[in-house]
Design a protein around this nucleic acid. Structure first.
Length: 498
DNA sequence: TTTTGAGTTGTTCGA
DNA sequence: GTCGAACAACTCAAA
């Protein structure tokens, strides 16, 4: 009491009930596990976001994903401001700037939802150590997926490496112990009052120009609106339309899930409720829920086996002798391979930061099989360009397309970009939209323009011939398998000798 | 321990 | 034009 101001006494008395929530890939207030845990523990709080260069990636703030992320942070700030809570935005390395804010605010507890990648986990551990050394309590939760990598296991306790049994186990687990999303958002009651020197170094988000960049509207409100619109609209036909890039038949929730503007739990919960309310939606929505479970599967694969970020899941295919033809890689990136369906996809990606999933498979197959270019290069390009780029799903998808992953596409199953185009874009609306040079071409030759009567001005001839490229890929993959078998046989012989 | 059934999304060939 | 078979064995997961 002596000499202390009224405020200071209050500060000390309440600091045990003060906490900070560190927002990362959980940019929402509803159904946020760690935030709700903090609300159970403290009276007053401050939300913080750290603009970490590592989070933005190599492209800085100008990539579609970074812009979308910053837009989500911006909207989160608005939503918090409406509740009278100022979002603190710090810039720099979390292990450095977070403890400073903790000190200045008098918080005794810091909460966050754990990261899923090896990189994020290392960063989290650095921060945890610094805070705990300073006597701060750290509360972490798993929140990014419905079930964690340890929760869905085979009878022997091993992680699943095949999707279908994983999915079955996932749903059994849900039956036993469903994880419905929280009905309402739960945040601490009060805000930590602004104290001396607490004002954070405020970073400018630069979150303008979303419309110009053709990005989806960022933020939690937009995510929930989109989910509702999907469930009451395209979901009914999802099982029929989802492979048609010329139809807007998917949920387009991937960017929101990526940054946690909506939780996977909420998607599953709302999907199941929608089926309950209208059983006619079952066919469409259960197919869509399957995609959420795929996301869970790949997240679990990455956490259980982080090596997949650099290596083939099936080791024998690390022996494939990949092509290093740079002009092929550039043509692929820029959407001028001479195969309209492939080029349409790559241009959609370049212009919007998003690509329809069916087309992702086709262009990935084209790069790894027709051009015989290492899947890691395609994975990196996608990761840099995609607004929804997620390390786990991106890696899983690429390894599947390259036939190197869990549940691989059999290596002899090589997508034919012409017949795939004819099948999934029958009138050519998708190609015409993204490859305007071909806009007036007859639908009968649209997916194989070299068959047209005359050359198309400004559109390239195919950079590889389908049949020959296919045979080259088959040989390269067969050789890798043969090499692996030879290695194995040699290893066995060695062991036998000893 | 052995057996059994199954495995996201296709393509090509020849009858 | 349509249809079924081959593609190439292999591994996983559970009974």
């Amino acid at each position: 009491m002596r000499g202390d101001s009224e405020d200071d006494r209050e500060d000390r008395a309440e600091s045990a009930g003060r906490g900070i929530h560190w927002f990362r890939n959980d940019l929402r207030l509803h159904d946020n596990t760690a935030l709700a845990a903090l609300a159970d523990r403290v009276e007053a709080w401050l939300p913080v976001f750290v603009l970490d260069p590592e989070l933005l990636g190599a492209g800085g703030r100008e990539t579609p994903r970074a812009r979308f992320l910053l837009g989500c942070v911006d909207r989160l700030g608005d939503a918090l401001a409406r509740r009278g809570v100022p979002l603190q935005i710090l810039e720099g390395e979390p292990a450095k700037v977070l403890p400073e804010l903790v000190r200045a605010s008098g918080a005794r507890v810091v909460s966050w939802n754990v990261g899923a990648t090896p990189l994020a986990r290392r960063r989290d551990e650095r921060v945890r150590r610094v805070l705990e050394d300073a006597g701060i309590e750290v509360v972490t939760c798993r929140d990014h997926t419905v079930f964690g990598p340890g929760e869905i296991r085979t009878g022997k306790g091993d992680p699943y490496s095949v999707y279908t049994p994983y999915r079955n186990a996932w749903w059994s687990r849900w039956q036993e112990a469903p994880r419905w999303s929280a009905a309402r958002s739960r945040i601490p009651k009060a805000t930590i009052p602004p104290g001396r020197g607490r004002r954070a170094r405020f970073a400018s988000l630069g979150a303008e120009d979303e419309a110009a960049a053709q990005l989806p509207t960022p933020g939690e409100d937009a995510a929930r609106r989109r989910l509702r619109a999907f469930l009451s609209g395209p979901a009914r036909r999802y099982h029929l339309d989802r492979d048609r890039p010329d139809i807007d038949g998917t949920s387009r929730l991937s960017p929101y899930l990526r940054f946690g503007a909506i939780s996977a739990r909420h998607c599953v919960s709302e999907g199941l409720r929608a089926i309950e309310a209208d059983p006619a939606l079952e066919a469409g929505i259960s197919k869509w829920l399957d995609e959420i479970v795929w996301r869970e599967f790949y997240a679990a694969v990455l956490e259980n086996e982080p090596r997949v970020l650099g290596e083939s899941y099936r080791r024998e295919y690390d022996g494939v002798r990949w092509s290093r033809d740079e002009s092929h890689f550039e043509a692929w990136c820029e959407g001028r391979t001479g195969y309209p369906f492939v080029d349409a996809g790559m241009r959609q990606l370049r212009e919007t930061g998003w690509m329809h999933n069916r087309v992702r498979m086709i262009v990935a197959s084209f790069l790894t099989k027709h051009l015989l270019i290492d899947w890691r290069r395609g994975e990196r390009h996608f990761f840099e360009a995609l607004v929804d780029g997620d390390p786990a799903s991106n890696n899983g998808g690429w390894q599947w397309a390259a036939s190197t992953g869990t549940d691989p596409q059999p290596y002899f199953r090589i997508f034919n970009p012409v017949s795939q185009g004819e099948r999934w874009d029958p009138e050519g609306r998708y190609v015409r939209r993204w490859v305007p040079e071909l806009r007036d071409l007859d639908a009968r030759v649209l997916h194989a323009p070299w068959k047209a009567d005359r050359p198309i001005p400004g559109y390239p001839a195919p950079i590889v011939e389908h049949k020959a490229a296919r045979e080259r890929a088959l040989e390269a993959f067969a050789a890798a398998r043969a090499g692996r078998q030879a290695d194995r046989a040699e290893g066995q012989a060695d062991r036998a000798e000893r």
